[in-house]
């Protein structure tokens, strides 16, 4: 072998070793985005005719998407021909103390909208408004009519700069379907 070739071969070996070693020390586990996990959706119902009658309906997935299945997934049971006042709450229960995400929605209510739709006989309307007089849906009024069963879907849409009150717009942050019975 001639010397030029030997030099080149040496160069290659050195290059291979350098790249190998420099990268071997890399035990960086990666950087996670700032967590803004929502683990829990809680609906607190108050019977408007008897304010002592309150109960909550909860969806909770404390370890976030994937992993363990949701720990609490209630269904909604209401009485026929009644009016309920409902407060919706979002929590991050993966941290202690639990973080109330509803406050963040409240703060940016001009860009957020909770939507409620039910296939049972319930009429749901928002009782709160944002700075542009559009509904927010943190507090709502649920009017039941005759006995029926169905599904109630609760969604939270993020609608930065595009909010018109239309729930179809924007991006879905929360979407939970509750089995619902009006008795």
């Amino acid at each position: 072998m001639n010397t030029t070739f030997k030099k080149l071969l040496l160069g290659f070996t050195a290059l291979a070793l350098v790249t190998g070693f420099s990268a071997c020390k890399d035990d960086d586990p990666g950087v996670e985005n700032p967590e803004e996990l929502i683990t829990t959706l809680k609906l607190t119902f108050t019977d408007s005719a008897n304010t002592a009658n309150t109960f909550t309906v909860t969806f909770a997935d404390p370890d976030g998407p994937g992993g363990n299945t949701p720990t609490t997934y209630d269904s909604i049971a209401l009485q026929a021909n009644k009016t309920y006042l409902v407060t919706t709450q979002l929590l991050n229960e993966s941290v202690t103390p639990a973080e109330d995400i509803t406050l963040e929605v409240e703060e940016e209510k001009d860009d957020h909208l909770f939507g409620y739709s039910s296939t049972a006989n319930i009429n749901i309307s928002a009782t709160d408004v944002d700075n542009n007089n559009l509904p927010v849906g943190i507090t709502t009024k649920w009017k039941t009519t005759i006995a029926s069963v169905g599904n109630t879907t609760v969604v939270l849409k993020h609608q930065p700069g595009i909010k018109t009150g239309d729930i179809a717009l924007g991006e879905t942050d929360v979407e939970v379907v509750f089995y619902t019975a009006v008795q």
Partner: peptide, 10 residues
């Protein structure tokens, strides 16, 4: 499609 909930992060 879904950006962070928080406007400043989004």
């Amino acid at each position: 499609r879904d950006k962070p909930l928080n406007d400043s992060l989004a």
